[in-house]
Design a protein around this nucleic acid. Structure first.
Lengths: 190, 190
DNA sequence: CGCTAGATAGAACGATCGGTCTTCCTCAGC
DNA sequence: GCTGAGGAAGACCGATCGTTCTATCTAGCG
């Protein structure tokens, strides 16, 4: 990866995440990345490719965090707590602006769009990962529990950048704790 | 409200919600609303005003649904179930594309922006409403419970348009049921 | 009747969009 | 020492962005 390319990708990541994807034009990325338009288009054939690369970068960062949570904690329960913890930390981080993937999906709702598909791929991986963790924990209903976890995460990430993140963070961690402590006892009638 | 204006607003609502706000230009709204550009700008001084009006329309529709849930159910618990039910119904509706407000916030992250402020106002009202309902229920910790409810709702609305809505719906309703059945027993250490 | 408000139709504005192109310069590997 | 890839600088493309404009028509109301 050339230096200009990584600088470009970092600039795009910062701008797309903090201001929104459609709101940021190629010119902005080029200018703030100290790069020529020609250089950008050498590395990324179109803006869509740049967006997908941006999401890929965020995806990689999250996988690193999950791996770290796995490495640091011994019991499955603590691994889940570790994952919850870095989500909670993320929310109260300066410059937090919600989930990059949910935000991207809001701007690119078309399921055929490459950007949208990148969002779905990341989310599928994350759900599968959580199912795995809850399975390790010995839960018979690992999938519902994982879905519950993801739902809390999505809600927390969505709300955390709209108001004071502190109560959001607390509500999230408390919800996860409840999920680890009690099991679902009854099914709902649809 | 003139006929052209309401037609304009309905068209904008449909387009903005299903395709995203920035993705839809004034021309599209004008064309599909069978209206002239001049007419649009007579009723809405700028696109931002049209967006705010769009969110206002969605906000009004949700308030109607909450009022209906209040009118139909007698016990506070059932009112909350009613609110959860219309959210669950919304998710599995054809053309469901997530929460109009969360989507708008993703596109307009600037807190000073009129669009962003409209999102915050709606969310504040909804949280206050849920706190009220949980207070009616007699919960001592009404606010945490309401925050928990809103977090589940946000997560469900965000995820419901990205994959099969059925498991999302079920996870959401189950989470709400759990919230109504058990109370939070311990606080989390931050 | 005349007046005004609201709608129609459509040209036009400058700005920006994503994307292509040419020209020159640099520097590492054969 | 030459070659060729990667980058800088910037002109340029057609399309679309949000917005304003003039001109004409129509309906309701005094």
């Amino acid at each position: 990866m050339s230096e200009a390319r990584s600088r470009l990708l970092d600039t795009a990541t910062g701008l797309f995440y903090s201001e929104g994807i459609r709101a940021v034009g190629i010119d902005r990325v080029v200018a703030e990345g100290k790069v020529t338009r020609a250089t950008l288009y050498r590395h990324f054939p179109s803006k869509d490719d740049l967006i997908v690369a941006y999401l890929g970068q965020v995806d990689a960062a999250i996988r690193v965090q999950v791996d770290a949570a796995r490495a640091k904690n011994s019991t499955p329960e603590d691994v889940i707590r570790g994952v919850a913890q870095f989500i909670a930390d993320d929310i109260q981080r300066a410059g937090f602006r919600g989930c990059a993937f949910l935000n991207a999906a809001a701007e690119y709702p078309d399921p055929d769009d490459a950007v949208h598909r990148a969002v779905l791929a990341h989310r599928q991986w994350f759900l599968d990962t959580m199912i795995e963790l809850f399975t390790d924990l010995g839960k018979i209903d690992a999938e519902p529990a994982a879905r519950h976890f993801v739902m809390l995460r999505d809600g927390a990430m969505a709300a955390g950048c709209l108001t004071d993140p502190e109560p959001v963070r607390e509500t999230f961690l408390r919800g996860v704790e409840g999920l680890l402590t009690y099991r679902s006892r009854e099914s709902v009638t649809t």
